[in-house]
Design a protein around this nucleic acid. Sequence first.
DNA 1: CCCTGATTCGC
DNA 2: GCGAATCAGG
Length: 199
Amino acid sequence: MDWTPEAIEALRGYWAEGHSTAEIGRRMGISKNAVVGKAHRLVLPPRPSPIRREPASGTAPAAAAVAPVAQPAPQPASPATATPPAPRPQPAPAPQPVAAQPPPAPRPAPAPVAPRPAPPPVAAAPARKPAPPPPARAMPAVVRPFPRSTSRSCCWPIGEPGTPGFRFCTAEAMGTKPYCAEHAAIAYVKVRDRREDAA
DNA sequence: CCCTGATTCGC
DNA sequence: GCGAATCAGG
């Protein structure tokens, strides 16, 4: 993988949007390991890991075992102020047998890496703006209590998230889908076919 | 089995 | 620095 500044920006963008490492890898045409490895090296904010790793090998477990010294304050952490469990937005709002796919080019976009359908972030308002790319801890998608009644715009991303030119399609979204008719046609495809391509 | 993210370690 | 292999939980 050639980690050009653009590629790194894209990675940061995807990462900030809360995509899974495998998903990012798929979109960028690289392995999830590459994504995780790079993210780790870039010291991107870690995601909630499904696993709990123990000291692994080498480190002395003895130290941990022999440290019964009572800790001072055991984190009162009121439920109200506790860290919000950042929602993991699934990029594919796909209905039954279909899922969003990363097409080589939605329309124009001669982007070096495949643009991808974004989860409905904070978008959909008249004044949409690019998702915050490099902010340390990005809240990917703020929960929207109730849907807008009029004119929801297409969520199809144009350009590289996190880069200046990034924007969304301006067409009107279809009834239930987050995309306009044109992009919905591109976005929804057999889920199984989605896996290999991405490049 | 599928998924997930984190770490390790040879390159 | 890179990323496959590996680990480990859901």
